[in-house]
């Protein structure tokens, strides 16, 4: 294991973690730093906000998958005689735990179905836009020259094209469904991956081991995918998580504006919009539940991504442990 020196640019070899621990007996802060390399999960538990975010997201994903199976209520089955029931803690019935809206739709089942929509769109868009953007970025960055100029020119043109206009156009043509929203957001969101990938490729491809791969006779495809791409994983993982949060918000915004998911689809943004149109005062829960869920999801994803950025970057991790050591060192003195 190679550890950078604190004072010079040298690298020091640390044989194995166990040997390192022996040597650090009686030096608790350095010991903690060495141990922390062993796993990501213990490190995550230590980061309380990150860990809470992970728990929240896991719960959200589980309820989006299994919730609708357990709670067997069609989110679009309205019964006007049941309309406007309060939640169970405001004297409502257990049949509709979170109450019903003015059309008699069950609020909880709509929240769960909305979570499904958000998560599916988020994952699909990150997958499609990420794959496409990364491929374009790899191509532009590795080839350089004219290819790079043309591809980055394409990115510039796409960035300057208003996404909302594209969304209006497509919704008018094919209607708002999960597929069309995914398409719109992916077409409108791949450029950031392309830009970032290209930037990192430009620096990674100058490293000697990439030249070594070329000199031993690797074909360009092999150089890019086995030597360059693995070194992009850290920044790309962070970007993908952040983009996931942005996509969930974008879907909600589009649906809120009526340019996204349409009836009979269910989406948090659509429900916020619907509740806003109807008797907001006195029935705040109809707008608060999807709104709070949306905010919490985005917040959790962002918190998790800032943990991920530090956790996947060895330099950042060392900074964190140095800060911890200084902090507790003061306390001991």
């Amino acid at each position: 294991m190679t550890v950078p020196d604190e004072y010079t640019s040298e690298l020091h070899d640390v044989e194995e973690a166990e040997h390192a621990e022996e040597a650090l007996h009686g030096r608790p802060f350095e010991l903690a730093a060495v141990r922390s390399r062993s796993g990501l999960l213990p490190d995550l538990v230590r980061d309380r906000l990150g860990f809470a975010s992970l728990i929240f997201l896991v719960l959200l994903i589980l309820s989006a998958i299994f919730g609708p199976m357990i709670l067997d209520i069609d989110p679009n089955a309205g019964n006007l005689s049941n309309a406007m029931q309060p939640p169970v803690w405001h004297g409502g019935s257990w049949d509709h735990i979170f109450g019903t809206d003015w059309q008699g739709y069950d609020v909880l089942s709509r929240l769960l179905a909305g979570a499904r929509t958000s998560l599916i769109i988020g994952v699909l868009v990150v997958l499609f836009a990420g794959t496409f953007g990364v491929l374009i970025g790899l191509w532009a960055g590795y080839k350089g020259g004219r290819t790079d100029r043309w591809l980055m020119g394409w990115v510039d043109v796409q960035v300057s094209f208003p996404g909302l206009l594209l969304a209006m156009l497509l919704i008018a043509l094919v209607g708002g469904s999960v597929a069309s929203i995914t398409f719109i957001l992916a077409v409108n969101g791949w450029m950031v991956y392309g830009r970032m990938t290209r930037g990192v490729v430009l620096s990674v491809k100058e490293r000697p081991f990439v030249e070594a791969a070329e000199i031993i006779g690797c074909k360009p495809k092999r150089v890019v995918f086995t030597h360059i791409l693995p070194n992009l994983v850290t920044p790309l993982a962070t970007l993908a998580v952040l983009e996931f949060a942005r996509i969930i918000l974008a879907e909600a915004a589009l649906s809120f504006l009526g340019l996204g998911i349409q009836y009979p689809g269910v989406s948090w943004g659509l429900d916020i919009s619907r509740a806003g149109d109807h008797e907001l005062f006195g029935n705040q829960w109809l707008i608060i539940y999807p709104g709070v869920l949306l905010s919490l999801t985005v917040l959790a994803v962002n918190l998790l991504s800032s943990w991920l950025r530090v956790a996947l970057d060895p330099q950042e991790r060392e900074k964190k442990f140095a800060a911890a050591a200084i902090g507790s060192g003061k306390g001991a003195a």
């Binding site: 190679t2 690298l11 000697p208 081991f209 070594a212 000199i215 031993i216 006779g217 030597h227």
Partner: peptide, 17 residues
């Protein structure tokens, strides 16, 4: 490349980690 090869200056940076 099968007939001519290079030994690099920096043995740290020239091996893929």
């Amino acid at each position: 490349r099968r007939h001519m090869q290079l030994v690099f200056q920096d043995p740290y940076a020239s091996l893929n980690p």
